[in-house]
Structure formats: structure tokens, C-alpha cells
Design a protein around this nucleic acid. Structure first.
Lengths: 69, 69
DNA sequence: ATTTTTTGTCAAATATACTTGACATTTTGT
DNA sequence: ACAAAATGTCAAGTATATTTGACAAAAAAT
């Protein structure tokens, strides 16, 4: 899977560590790391919580135009 | 959880049954039903596949302004 | 240079998304 | 009214998201 650089950038823009974001979102640091590194397929509720914590929308952080595949 | 009426409407607009959408997305009819009825928390990849099959984006089908809690 | 914080990653356990099969109810078509 | 298609839902199983604990490497701070 591909890394989520947009998420990483949005987090950096707010000067949050993975651990701080994890706490806001009530999930583990490892989970945040895995999501950023594209190591798995998070649930949409987690994605939504991350978006809210970072002040972004789903399309901004998780949508890919570029016909998938 | 809340029903996903936008998804139901988008599917209806293309005149697809739950079963037909399920096949396009390579998931079970029960899973589509559960997602529409808000009975659970799908993975983002499933949401993305559903969006592509219905010609919508994540924000259009799964994002909620209304600071939902 | 050396602490301190942040991040990557691994293994084992737990929670939950998703499947399969089946039946009842609702909706649509004739 | 009847038959067929579409949907809701349940139980038991399988796959995988997420946790917990831990350690090493990289980056940032002093």
C-alpha cells in the first residue's frame, strides 16, 4: 500500500507527534504510524476521527483521483 | 449508528440492487446492506470501492459536516 | 556528545469487519 | 392475488484491524 503523505503533512502542519494525534483520536501510536505508512486499511470511523483532529476532510486526506487500480 | 441515505440514493440513481453493487465491489450483499443501514464501520478501502462504483467521492457519501460529536 | 523525543517495527492477544448460508418480510411486476 | 426479486437480519465462522508491550534507530533538543 502507499504511504499517506497528505496525512503526515497535515499532522506536521499542526505540530503534532504521532503520539499526540493518537491520543486525540483515542487510538494507539502504532495505529497512527501504520495508517501513515499505508501498512493497512483503517476503518472509516478512524479516518473520520483523524480528519476532524487534523481539520481536513476525507477527500483531502484519503481520496485518490487517479483511477485507482 | 445512522443509516447512510446518501449511499442508498446514489445506488438507486444508478438502478442497482444491493446484490449488483455487492458484486461490483466484490463483497457480500449482507455487507452492503449493513453499510447502508449503518450497522457497522466499514474499512476505508471498501468505502472507496463503493464510491467508485457509484461515481461519488468519500465526502459525498461518507463525510458529515455537522460536527458529529 | 549525549540525553530526550519521535518514529518504525515485531510478536502475541483481542475486537471487530466481513463471509456463508439460511429464512422472513417487503417491494415490484404481472 | 400471486410470483419473483430485493432487502433485513441472525448465527457461526474466518480474516484482519487495533491493542499492548517492548526494543532499536532516527531526529530534535540541550
Amino acid at each position: 500500500m502507499a504511504k499517506n503523505l497528505r496525512m503526515k503533512a497535515a499532522r506536521a502542519a499542526l505540530d503534532l507527534s504521532q503520539d499526540e494525534l493518537a491520543k486525540k483520536v483515542k487510538v494507539t501510536r502504532q495505529t497512527i504510524s501504520a495508517v501513515e505508512n499505508g501498512d493497512y486499511n483503517p476503518t472509516i470511523n478512524l479516518c473520520i476521527d483523524i480528519c476532524r483532529a487534523l481539520g481536513k476532510t476525507l477527500d483531502e486526506l484519503f481520496w485518490n483521483d487517479e483511477g485507482g487500480k
